[in-house]
């Protein structure tokens, strides 16, 4: 299986060429790195490359998305395998406005501002979700028609859970 990684919006091929314990040789894009990489604490990695010390803290978002924290910087990394390539190709170029509205974090539905079958204009708020005392409004990007409302006001929801689907 061949993998790619998407870093800050750019796809690059990645392959582990050889590995012995923590020592590994990895090819990413056109470059090859000879490094020592170890998970020192759960989700915290220490990388040594040419004597230089790098610390990375990983925040997993789903099984293939990561936010990597290093001092003062955050990098978005997505692992692309055959499955995600397939999903991507099926979606075509329409990735910017999804088939449903979801939130990136768990929370509680405060208010649903639309009904099934209703037409909404781009930029209109369709649902308000609260998490940790903060209320966030979720809007549609383009003009859409509401297909199905899958939650009720007061419901507790998970992150990335479909809440409202569109035609």
């Amino acid at each position: 299986m061949s993998y790619e990684v998407n870093i800050n919006g750019e796809d690059r091929k990645i392959e582990i060429l050889s590995r012995e314990g923590n020592r590994m040789k990895v090819q990413i894009g056109e470059k090859t790195y000879d490094l020592d990489l170890t998970e020192v604490e759960p989700g915290v990695y220490s990388a040594l490359h040419k004597g230089k010390n790098f610390n990375f803290e990983l925040v997993r978002r789903g099984s293939k998305k990561y936010v990597v924290d290093t001092i003062g910087k955050k990098l978005d990394v997505e692992i692309i395998d055959a499955e995600s390539r397939y999903v991507k190709s099926r979606k075509g170029g329409e990735a910017e406005d999804a088939a449903y509205i979801s939130t990136p974090m768990p929370g509680q539905v405060v208010k649903i501002l639309v009904e099934e079958g209703q037409e909404v204009k781009g930029g209109e708020t369709v649902i308000i979700v609260s998490a940790m005392k903060m209320e966030s409004e979720y809007k549609v990007v383009k003009d859409r028609v509401i297909k199905e409302i899958l939650v009720k006001e007061g419901d507790n929801i998970d992150g990335d859970q479909p809440l409202i689907t569109f035609e």
Partner: peptide, 24 residues
């Protein structure tokens, strides 16, 4: 968030995420 992380740092971050992904 500053995007001027060195290329080396960005690559290593991606490698780290990939290794963690394989491990999981």
């Amino acid at each position: 968030s500053i995007d001027n992380a060195s290329e080396e740092c960005v690559d290593l971050a991606a490698i780290t995420a990939f290794v963690d992904f394989l491990k999981k």
